[in-house]
Design a protein around this nucleic acid. Sequence first.
DNA 1: CCGGTTTAGAAAACCGGTTTAGCCGCACAG
DNA 2: CTGTGCGGCTAAACCGGTTTTCTAAACCGG
Lengths: 365, 365
Amino acid sequence: MERRASRPRIADVARVAGVSKTAVSFAFNSPERLSLETADRIREVAESLGYRPHPVARMLTQRRTMALGVLTPQALSVIFSNPFFALFNEGIARAAEEHGYELHFISPIHGSLVTAIGRATVDGVVAIGVSAEHPEVGQVRGAGLPLVLVDSEDPPELGSVVVDDEGGARAAAAHLIELGHRDILVLAVEAPQAVGDASADAPLGPRAEAAVTVRRLRGYEQAFESAGLALDPAWVVAGRASIDGGAAAFQRAWAMDLRPTAVLAMGDAMALGAIRAARDLGLRVPNDLSVVGFDDIDLASHVDPALTTVHQPIRQKGFEAVRLLLAEVEQPASPVQHLRLETRLIVRGSTAPPHGRGEVPGTQQ
Amino acid sequence: MERRASRPRIADVARVAGVSKTAVSFAFNSPERLSLETADRIREVAESLGYRPHPVARMLTQRRTMALGVLTPQALSVIFSNPFFALFNEGIARAAEEHGYELHFISPIHGSLVTAIGRATVDGVVAIGVSAEHPEVGQVRGAGLPLVLVDSEDPPELGSVVVDDEGGARAAAAHLIELGHRDILVLAVEAPQAVGDASADAPLGPRAEAAVTVRRLRGYEQAFESAGLALDPAWVVAGRASIDGGAAAFQRAWAMDLRPTAVLAMGDAMALGAIRAARDLGLRVPNDLSVVGFDDIDLASHVDPALTTVHQPIRQKGFEAVRLLLAEVEQPASPVQHLRLETRLIVRGSTAPPHGRGEVPGTQQ
DNA sequence: CCGGTTTAGAAAACCGGTTTAGCCGCACAG
DNA sequence: CTGTGCGGCTAAACCGGTTTTCTAAACCGG
């Protein structure tokens, strides 16, 4: 058995078959330009040698990679441990495989997104958590790659997919107000401290994520105003967008002597954290404290009580982003498209009137 | 503003700077071979033109891609929605980014893993759910790529990372037996029906997953035998490895008039499904039914009651697989390595003595 | 039997870089 | 004054394919 036999090249096949490289290439790519007999013989030889065209060489000549990039300022390991991305990636993946494209994740390498982009061999990029002010956007466009933004519409000449964060937030706040709550704590997402260290090349995600935070906050405010109330900035506490972050933020608020009857969390993970912290303080949810999340991750419907939250179509967001991107990739002349998807409030078991006033829904699945 | 200006090539930089392509290349890769002055001037010109070496061309000459492949027989969208893979990918990602490698997911394209592998531009591959009998293994090796197997040791000449499935299963069964259970239902993972259709090129995952199933089943059996009992094949029911699959399997067993006091599920999702189904039948967990899972996914400790399960270090499995792979990639001479990681039983709230006999642990977090 | 069109395949250019071999001019040793 | 070594850079080969251009033989009608 042949050991360490380095991969056969097209020239090897040509030599063994007694033809030119051209003929071998034709045998695979345009067999009609060869006699049936020759084409068959070449393919047979190729098979026996275990020949496969080298994918990199192929990309170089064809100027396509048949791969799409998913650009995120977060580290890869974060992407995969985050339930939001799990859904988003699922949508992205479904669209990509439907069209026969592979997926490459473009995330900081040794802390640098710039080098990661420089290495990416893709035909187009979907970027999430990134907008105009990021130098990365310019770099991708400089490379001549189509780019579709998710959760940002900022450079308006780029394709984009966003959701109605404002409307969703408005509905969430209105729901609590309608139930009779007045002392409402808002848990905002704080900008994560970049990726590990403040590396030389990038003030990363913060601002783009901030945009989402701002939109949701605006939605909350609108609901307050519509009800003739005002959102006291002292009742807005920021924390990391995780279970622990939510718990910590709630505890901090409690320590500041805030005694809310309800919580508006900007993410389900934070909401779950708030519930945990509240329970540790002896509060019952929803009897003593109502909690509304945001995003509607899978877990939200599986906890007890099931979480009232604002649903946003995360899978679909990924799916559509790839769809728009592929339109640009496959017909470069086509106009960029903008898409805005709806959000909607899903009332489950974690909200009720304050202080046990009125009926208590309990666990209504 | 320059429109559609196609990406500058190295020749453009050379022309503008009045030097050869070689000099430009040196300016970036071996500046010491140029006078400081020339190197600076070239870099300046390159910068002003927005030049970036074309990554594909670079890969071709350097014969490295600085990317690793994650090979799975499952569709990409499955990978991202599965909590097991979420943890596995997290480990993989952490190791890859630590070493400055990108990650490419190699999953069936239009149902064919073979074409996906043919397109993959990577320096090495980690394969999960795949073993000797799969033609894909041969293809990867034929391409001259280092390959590390996860959850299989079958072609022994390949690097591998496995966990002690047998020992974990033994501990799980022993735990139930010790609590006094005798009527124990086993929920096995059934082979998923390939990817969509029975496409021409691949009898995919089934057999490799079956190997894990077999190992766990053997572990259960061993515990039974050690206690002088026997595992009745009629009490082994197969189902899909999901919450719904677990629920369905439990219901099927119930319909067959099996009345277990405990369940050994080969995955946490199945265990959760069994719990749901049992509750729907009016059973209380753990009072009327004890349930033990396998894997210890994140969710396991967050449900109520928290799930007693066999912990396997999934993140670590991914991390170590990449570590072994990189050793082969970076020093091709190095010997392949085999790693076996431990599993351990984690007793939480979903198990108790049968029929409320003895004390009831309740929710002990 | 001849000029023109097909057909089958080869030669060469190309994709966009890196790398090897080598050239040129200058300083320095003999 | 000549040979040698070296710094600084270039020409050309190369990576492994695809694609364009070109050629020789077969075919074809008149």
